[in-house]
Amino acid sequence: MARIRVQNLVKAWGDFRAVDDIDFETNDGEFVALLGPSGCGKSTTLRLIAGLDQATSGQIFIDDRDVTQVAAAKRNLALVFQSYALFPHLSVADNITFGLSVRGVPRAERERRLEKTASLLGVTALLGRKPSQLSGGQQQRVALGRALISEAPVCLLDEPLSNLDAKLRAEMRNEIRTLQQRLGITMVFVTHDQTEAMSMADRVILMKSGKVEQCGTPAELYENPASTFVAGFIGTPPMNLVAAAPKDGRLAVAAAASSDLVLGVRPEHIEFAGEGQEAVVAGSEYFGADTVVACRIGEQKLMVRVPGRPGLGTGAQVRLAWAPSNEHAFDARSGLRKSA
């Protein structure tokens, strides 16, 4: 069991700060997602925790032990690389036991743990093969095996699913989650895919330009986004963010696209109703279970997600309504949430 604590962590290359003064803490056995668009510093943060890069300043603690200056191999953690980094000249068995053999674990012990790990991951039949003879999903399992056999209390995963096809990705998502809960280890994984983060993680750390934008449970990020960035990043399609004007103690969509107030409302929370703001249908996308209808109010565009097929053609007149509790107000200049 282990907790990771990151304090005032900075990684700079010249004037560019890839990781800019971030703080967060994970709990024992927690599954944490580092989420963000590419170039936001999430992978760099993971590399700093792993010890593959040296922090410019700040500290990293694992179980209250300051590991900032400790070599990667001595931090008692495992890492699954995005490219898997399997040794092409070694068999699956030798790849998995590489760390044990390097650390001089006796052969009998190695074989016992190999057997256990291989059956856990379902790669027993592949032990004699070389990495080039494996499919992407199998390579992923072997990479996981190499990380898990060390029995380190912390396991870091860098974009673990990005090299897999859609079907396999959904399967592995489940499997990694199950493994993490079964083994009770702390897992931190990097992803740019918000559905991955939302569906797998206990807690999501959303990053932007080297800073932590919001840190919380998936539900917190979805229900109470701290900024327009979070609101626009989480959800498919993301939250509608439009210029707003106060009206009767609530917010209404302003006709003009500029205002110092931003209204946020999720597409799935808007409905076509008998009364509400008037809008014109500008187009729609049909997904089977639901349809996303693009509507226009003056210069502004809103997405509306409705179940089934609403049968609205372009140019149809509709009225949009949503519950007051689904209304989010943000400051237009800072992008931050306005407390009610």
Partner: peptide, 21 residues
């Protein structure tokens, strides 16, 4: 690939072990 070297170091191999293995 440099990640292979990183993986080897992370698994506890030093300079000579990484070179040899």
């Amino acid at each position: 690939s440099p990640t292979l070297i990183e993986a080897s170091r992370l698994e506890g191999a030093g300079f000579w072990q990484t070179l040899w293995r």
